[in-house]
Amino acid sequence: MAEFRVTYDAKADAAYIYLGEVGPSGVASMYPCDPIRVGGMINLDFDDSGRLVGVEVLGAASKLPRTLIDQAERV
């Protein structure tokens, strides 16, 4: 199984799930999920090859498992 990294900003209640290496050009595009359908704001980040490299979750405390937030790196 591939390893991933999670960071969490408690003040902003925002988490970022890193799914892969972001190339030198950084995130090439971002797709915002429909906030009404997901009940919040979730953004998908893609690299310049179209690979999903990260997921930003706003309102993370209500969207992610508590164990994931507890184990996340604090920023």
Rank of each mutant, 00 (worst) to 15 (best):
K11I: 00
A14T: 14
G59A: 03
S49E: 12
L19T: 04
A10E: 04
T67N: 10
Y18E: 07
V55W: 10
I36L: 12
A2C: 02
D13T: 01
D70N: 13
L44I: 08
N43H: 11
I36K: 15
E56V: 02
D9I: 07
E3S: 12
D70P: 00
V6E: 03
F46S: 07
I69R: 05
L68P: 02
G59N: 08
D45R: 12
A14K: 15
D34H: 09
S25W: 04
V75C: 04
R51I: 10
P65K: 05
P24Y: 02
S62L: 09
P24F: 10
A15V: 06
L44E: 02
A2K: 14
D45H: 15
R66M: 00
I36M: 12
A15E: 00
V6I: 12
A72R: 07
G59T: 09
L58N: 05
P32F: 06
R37M: 08
R51G: 06
G39F: 12
G54Y: 06
I36S: 09
P65G: 02
G54C: 08
G23Q: 05
D70T: 01
R5A: 05
F4I: 01
A2V: 02
G39W: 04
A28G: 11
R37N: 11
L52I: 11
L68S: 01
E3D: 14
A60M: 08
A72I: 03
F4K: 05
V38Q: 03
N43E: 15
A28Y: 01
E73A: 11
Y18S: 10
T7P: 01
N43K: 00
A2M: 12
L52P: 14
A61D: 13
D34C: 07
S29I: 01
F46W: 11
D70M: 07
C33T: 04
L44F: 09
G26P: 04
L68I: 15
P32V: 07
S25L: 12
A28S: 13
M30L: 07
V38Y: 00
M30T: 14
T67V: 10
R51Q: 12
G23S: 03
P24N: 04
G59I: 10
I17S: 09
L68F: 06
V53L: 02
Y16L: 09
E73V: 13
I17D: 00
P24W: 05
E56M: 00
V22Y: 10
A60H: 03
T7R: 06
T67D: 15
P32E: 15
D34T: 06
G26R: 14
A10W: 04
A60D: 04
V55A: 06
K11E: 01
L52G: 04
V57E: 00
V27Q: 10
V53G: 04
P24L: 13
L44C: 03
L19M: 07
I42D: 11
R5Y: 07
K11R: 12
K63W: 07
D34G: 06
A12V: 08
M41T: 15
A10M: 06
N43M: 10
G20I: 13
G20W: 09
T67P: 00
A14Q: 02
L19G: 08
Q71A: 15
S25Y: 08
V38A: 13
A61K: 14
